[in-house]
Design a protein around this nucleic acid. Structure first.
Ligand code: MN
Ligand code: MN
Ligand code: MN
Ligand code: MN
Lengths: 231, 231
DNA sequence: TCTCATAATTAGTATAGACTAACTAGTTCT
DNA sequence: AGAACTAGTTAGTCTATACTAATTATGAGA
């Protein structure tokens, strides 16, 4: 007898949807998502994760290698990308049409993503003109489940002298996001790397075209994902 | 020893919020909401209602008279009206800003009402200009928890010869709503009652000012809530 | 190769919310 | 008043999801 699989098409619960999203993020670089990392990201105990991992692998959404970690199956990946699409369209809609600032959209989207219908999401996407990026510069997966993969460098690692476009801001922390906005550091901005202090010191940049300088500490510079601009 | 009250301020769950809303609707004419009516409206078994009733009275949201029914406490009424405000603002926002028709908003609002923040609701209310009525003509409670109480007559009961304003459409059924819209029977429309056939027969009306006649069967005429227009 | 720290899992418990089956209170009819 | 119907409640079970405490596997150092 086979090891009792579950109903292959249960409606996903809110918890399940959130687990799939964090597993996606933790394993997107190809590796396994570790139990303790999932637990930390969801603010839940490791045994709770072990329990959920059991259920998710029984429903075929993830692959579990005991003591090593988990990965999404293609079914799980599809479900995760659907949630990420919802989340990012919601974030953009709230900023563009309801006056939210980019520091506060995340919490709202985190709840709404589980309650909206596909129909509503597609209406929002239409109202936004089928957008490609959310307010933080993260790519929005298509309804078919494709997502843009770009090679980006953290500003903290960019070579001095290069010219960059700021593409993504890798945090949801409201205070940091507010600070970035004040400094004019939002996706799409062009800049050149002027210098970097040794021993994990700050990076100094010049905004293009204004030339205005900014000094960015290492912690923050690791959150600014940039693309090198071809000469 | 007292009969063990629960935490007076638990965050309300989705289920609890839906129970409070239906209890509000069932007891709004002053009476008690019966277990079996609550069960029917939530599509849940009567024992499930008994179980929930126990929890809700322990948290002080309702008053339970065994074998008679339940009523909301003032705390429960406040919570119910908050949900009704959310629901109706969502319905109106979806129709006004996202192209929904009035037959399909209900299902969407039924889920979203539990996920939106107060902040988002107030932003939608602002975008709508602090509206007073939802797409079906139902009054929207204020943020403070006040709701307009109007004396309305069902078209089925209106005296022949009277002039009426159609105020509310008392159904969420998509097919019926679509039909009403086709017939031009939407809140705000003026009409006069031309005649009524005996033995629960249809009511014939004339739209004002066009004079166009409509014959409305009893079942539908009971859903059209009207206000008599002073001569 | 053995030991130990760390990470992961299992065992056992709790709560919310649903269900069915069985029992009982209230009401209505004869 | 008693019988009988109806509505409501209790008893017992189930699933999802969380928790703490206890146990075990894995990989790094000695
Ligand atoms: Mn979420
Ligand atoms: Mn984002
Ligand atoms: Mn609801
Ligand atoms: Mn409505």
């Amino acid at each position: 007898m086979q090891p009792a699989l579950r109903d292959p098409n249960p409606p996903l619960t809110r918890s399940v949807e959130d687990y799939l999203k964090v597993i996606y993020h933790l394993s997107s670089q190809g590796g396994f998502a570790a139990t303790s990392d999932i637990a930390a990201m969801l603010d839940v105990s490791p045994p709770s994760v072990s329990g959920m991992v059991k259920r998710l692998s029984e429903t075929g959404l993830i692959e579990h290698v005991p003591y090593r970690g988990v990965q999404l199956t293609s079914q799980g990946r599809r479900a995760a990308l659907r949630m990420i699409r919802r989340h990012r369209i919601l974030e953009l809609y709230l900023t563009q049409h309801l006056g939210y600032d980019w520091g506060s959209v995340h919490a709202e989207a985190e709840r709404l993503e589980h309650a909206v219908s596909d129909d509503l999401i597609e209406r929002m996407a239409s109202a936004l003109g089928q957008p490609q990026y959310d307010p933080h510069g993260d790519p929005i997966p298509t309804a078919a489940g494709d997502i843009e993969e770009t090679e980006l460098v953290a500003l903290a690692d960019a070579r001095v002298g290069t010219k960059l476009e700021l593409r993504q801001v890798g945090t949801q922390d409201a205070a940091r996001l507010r600070y970035f906005a004040e400094q004019g550091l939002t996706p799409g901005v062009l800049l050149t790397v002027s210098e970097r202090q040794p021993f994990n010191g700050p990076t100094t940049i010049a905004l293009v075209p204004s030339g205005e300088p900014r000094v960015v500490g290492r912690e923050l510079a690791q959150l600014l994902w940039c693309q090198e601009i071809g000469a």
